[in-house]
Design a protein around this nucleic acid. Structure first.
Lengths: 144, 144
DNA sequence: TTGCTTGCAAATGATTTGCACTGCT
DNA sequence: AGCAGTGCAAATCATTTGCAAGCAA
């Protein structure tokens, strides 16, 4: 499964004449190991060799290639996670106090009903429908 | 309805020993007139007299008081909207290209089913459940 | 050799803050 | 008088970018 992941990452980068370097592989490895989106400081902590600016640049390259997704949530830093087609569709449970994020999946029938509702809403407004993301807000065990 | 709105805003600020000044009222008026969340530049454009730093400060005061909600979405600027208990529960249809946001409401039975699913997910992880927000991504009429 | 990558240092830009002044109450 | 609000200018801080050197094809 890890091989598939790295193979997919390499292929998507190659399409844009980008290489799958050791630094980029390191980022993907950390994100794959993480059970939830990581911030840039978290990535640098996990791989102390990485430099800040190159990591920002690599995340942008990986995002362009569709390997990584930037998640905007609470807090000062952006969060990054692997693209959904590499890990599966899911949503986020966000602690409004400390900013921690946990992944959540909904059952298929509910997702299906949501898709229908979103398609109708998008069509009514002349939008081409893309994906969707749900943030469930709450207070985590430690913060409540 | 506008009176209720301003009355509620004034009351919530008063609880924190804050005043409902002309500048703050202007912000609330613009947000109430807007069909979707507004950025800071949009607010300044709508009320040319407002100063940037005071508007940031006033938005923070209004957010503290629970009158305004800060919406993090795509783009460089944060978006602001009136708190949901003043305008009604809704979600956002976001154009991934230009960052435009439109409000969307889902039907009550679907919202109800979502609530149940979220409550279960939160409980399973030891979270106190709060609200939720859904971003439906797409490409708007002009951008597609 | 060509051109993608890298890391450092410097720049950018949204948001925040220090401070002195104005104006409710 | 006392304290909240205001606006200007300066400071912050995450993120981006210029540049010169490194490295893979």
């Amino acid at each position: 499964m890890a091989d598939e992941l790295h193979g997919a990452a390499e292929a998507r980068l190659a399409e844009r004449d980008q290489r799958y370097t050791a630094n980029r592989r390191a980022i993907v490895e950390v994100l794959a190991a993480q059970p939830a989106p990581a911030t840039l400081p978290a990535l640098l902590r996990a791989r102390p060799g990485l430099s800040q600016s190159s990591t920002y640049r690599n995340l942008a390259a990986l995002e362009d290639a569709g390997v990584v997704r930037r998640v905007v949530a609470v807090g000062e830093h952006a969060h990054y996670e692997l693209a959904e087609d590499l890990t599966g569709h899911h949503h986020h449970l966000v602690c409004v106090t400390c900013g921690t994020i946990e992944d959540v999946t909904l059952d298929a029938s509910l997702e299906h009903r949501l898709e229908q509702a979103f398609a109708a809403a998008a069509a009514a407004r002349g939008f081409d429908l893309g994906g969707h993301s749900i943030d469930i807000e709450g207070r985590c065990r430690e913060c409540r």
